[in-house]
Simulated assay, not measured.
Amino acid sequence: MKKPAPRKKPAPRRKPKKKSSWLRSTIIIVSILLVITAIGYHYRNGLAYYLGYKTDKIIKQEAEQKRLSDVRNFQILSKHQGKIAGIDVSEYQGNILWDSVKNIEGTFPIQFIIVRSTAGKNRVDAKFHQNWKAIKNQKIIRGAYHYYRPNENSLEQAELFIKTVKLKKGDLPPILDIEKLPKNQSIDSLKVGLKRWLKRVEEHYGEKPIIYSGESYYSDFLEEEFADYNFWIANYNFFVENIKDDWLIWQFTEKGTIPGIKGNVDVNIFNGNLQQLKFQTIGN
C-alpha cells in the first residue's frame, strides 16, 4: 500500500499594506472644513445679522431682547418678505404667553397660527381649547389640524374632529395631518380612509380641507390622487430656500424661537400675502 503523498503547505498570505491612517484623517478634516466654509459663505448675510445683533445690542439691552431663531430661519424669512409667516403649536409647547407671541426674530410678524386639535379616534390635544380661544382673542387668523392615525377608523377620527372643532368665519379650512404609513393595511386602503375623512369633514363644514404632510410622503403617495386639495408641506432641508409654487404653506423649520413660547416651534410661510390668506379663510 502506497503512502499518501504529503500535502503541500499553502504559501503564507501576504499581509495587505495598511493604508495611511494619517492621510485618511487629513482628508476627512479637510472635507469637513470645506463644508463648514461653504455653509458659512452661503449664509454670510444671516451670520452678519446674528453676530451684529448679539455683540452690539445684547450687552446694553439683554433683558429686553427677544431670543433669536437660527441663522437659516432669518435668511428664509428675509427671502420671503412678500409673503407672510405663521407658526403651529400643540400641547407640547405647554402654557403659551399669548400676549408675547407677536413676531419671529423681532422682525417678522406672526399672521396666522395653526393648532393641533385632535389625534386618532379618541385623543383631544390637552391645550387645544385654551389655545383656540386665545388665538381668537389675539385677532390672528387661526386654523386647526387633526393628526391622522392610519391604523384607526377614519370616520371615527372625522367625528372626533367635528365634535371638537367649531370653525367660524375667518378661520382656515379644516386640516388633515398625515405623516405615518399603515402597519396592517395597504397604501390603497390608507388612501380610502383618507378620502373618507376628507369627504365627511367637507360635508360638515362646507369647506374643502387642507392636507399636511412631508414632501417625500406627498410626492410618493398623495400628489396624484389628492391633486384637488391644497397642501401644507413640511421640508426642513438645509439647502431648500424657496417655497414651491404648488405648496399653499411651507413648514420650513421645527426649530423656531418665539417670545412667549418655551422650546422649539414650527415656523411656516404662506404662499401669498395677507389678503390672499384671508381669501382662503371660511366665509371669504
Rank of each mutant, 00 (worst) to 15 (best):
D246K: 12
Y236V: 02
K168A: 11
S189A: 15
N184G: 08
I249E: 02
R142A: 11
D228A: 12
Y145K: 01
V192M: 08
L176N: 00
F239V: 11
R200A: 13
Y218L: 07
E179W: 00
S216Q: 10
V201N: 03
K169D: 13
A158N: 12
T118N: 08
Y145E: 00
Q157W: 10
D228Q: 13
K180A: 14
P182K: 08
I162R: 13
Q157R: 10
I175P: 07
F161K: 10
W197N: 06
K139C: 07
N230E: 06
W232H: 03
L222H: 13
K166S: 10
W232Y: 05
K139L: 06
K208A: 01
D177L: 00
S117G: 15
D246M: 00
H204W: 07
Y229H: 12
N151L: 03
K180T: 12
P182R: 10
E152Q: 15
Y236R: 00
I249N: 04
V201M: 03
Y205R: 01
P182I: 05
E223N: 10
Q157G: 10
K166F: 05
D171Y: 10
I211T: 07
S117F: 03
N131L: 09
I249P: 01
V240Y: 02
K244E: 12
R200H: 06
I140D: 07
S154P: 15
L222W: 11
W250E: 03
G206P: 02
K169W: 02
K244G: 00
D245E: 12
N235I: 00
T118H: 08
G206I: 02
R123L: 14
K208R: 07
S186E: 10
N237H: 09
K163T: 13
K168W: 02
D125W: 04
N131C: 04
N131D: 14
K136R: 14
S213K: 01
Q251R: 12
F128S: 08
Q185S: 15
L172P: 09
R142H: 11
I141Y: 12
V165S: 04
I210W: 05
H146N: 03
I249G: 02
E152K: 04
I233A: 04
